[in-house]
């Protein structure tokens, strides 16, 4: 295992997922938005407008680079071509942070374009940690691993998700990205207490927080089944969990994720403002 210093180059303030339709508003007046996050794969073309926008924005904002295609939980070896594209992006963009998901998305048949779940066993923890070690070695930096939204459980799992993430982080030296909406979604879907999950989460490893909106459906028995859609506002119970986390552990870089049915800038900025109020409340209280 390679050792990496746990650090975050992101300010403990709100950030938003960057969407090109918001560029003018962001350059004009970003309001409380202090940093931007991009999906790494959208900037792996050769150049043109996406690269030009990112060069301009990265001069004004710290950028967090969030991968959605590495398939860190995949059984097969990591895609070296894809890893090379990522290394190239990280080299020219010099993002403040790189993060990826505890999930798999690639199989022998190709790329499945979804974040698929893993059983939590010591065997998969070692496998995931080996892949993270490879990523961190190629990139020459620490990465954060994000807790997933899960819809199903595996009969073969032997560990809780928090124990699994702690184990992977210890084996690989990675940090963690805490998605509070994913905690709420998974806890509802898997019938556990989100606050107990958060109390058990290794917060000292967290370098970034995600907040996003989800859809509410029902499973075949009429039990609530929440789906992580990033297509609407963060709901109040998720804000309440977030506020508890910030009150307990202090201000942390916090991203509003909105990836589908993307709203006009004032709506997204309003979500960032709500996060800012919570983050500022803590720093004011600490003064």
């Amino acid at each position: 295992m390679t050792t990496h210093t746990h650090q975050t180059g992101l300010p403990p303030k709100p950030g938003v997922g960057y969407k090109p339709q918001h560029i003018e508003a962001i350059l004009d007046d970003p309001g409380p938005v202090a940093w931007l996050e991009i999906h790494a794969e959208n900037y792996m073309g050769g150049g043109g407008v996406p690269h030009a926008q990112m060069r301009a924005l990265s001069e004004r904002f710290p950028i967090s680079c969030h991968g959605v295609g590495l398939s860190i939980g995949g059984n097969g070896p990591l895609d070296r071509d894809h890893l090379d594209r990522l290394r190239h992006l990280v080299e020219w963009l010099k993002p403040a942070m790189f993060s990826e998901h505890l999930a798999w998305s690639t199989h022998e048949t190709g790329f499945l374009n979804d974040l698929l779940p893993l059983p939590y066993t010591s065997r998969t923890a070692q496998h995931v940690a080996d892949h993270i070690d490879e990523v961190q070695t190629v990139l020459g930096r620490q990465m954060l691993l994000e807790n997933p939204s899960v819809y199903v459980a595996f009969a073969e799992s032997t560990m809780s998700e928090t124990d699994f993430l702690r184990d992977v982080a210890q084996r690989s030296g990675c940090g963690l990205l805490l998605d509070v909406n994913n905690v709420y979604v998974s806890a509802t879907n898997q019938h556990y207490d989100p606050d107990a999950y958060l109390r058990d989460f290794p917060m000292h490893l967290v370098g970034e927080i995600h907040l996003g909106g989800h859809d509410a459906e029902e499973d075949d028995r009429g039990d609530p089944l929440l789906i992580d859609t990033h297509d609407r506002e963060v709901i109040d119970p998720v804000w309440a969990l977030y506020e508890t986390v910030i009150a307990r552990h202090g201000a942390m870089p916090t991203l509003i994720e909105w990836d589908s049915d993307i709203p006009d800038w004032p709506v997204l900025e309003g979500e960032a403002r709500r996060a800012d109020a919570i983050l500022s409340g803590v720093s004011l209280a600490a003064e």
Partner: peptide, 15 residues
């Protein structure tokens, strides 16, 4: 096999 609901039953809707 082994993809289950919280109560251990097969997770059809969830899958």
């Amino acid at each position: 096999d082994g993809i289950v609901n919280p109560d251990g039953s097969p997770a059809r809707r969830r899958f």
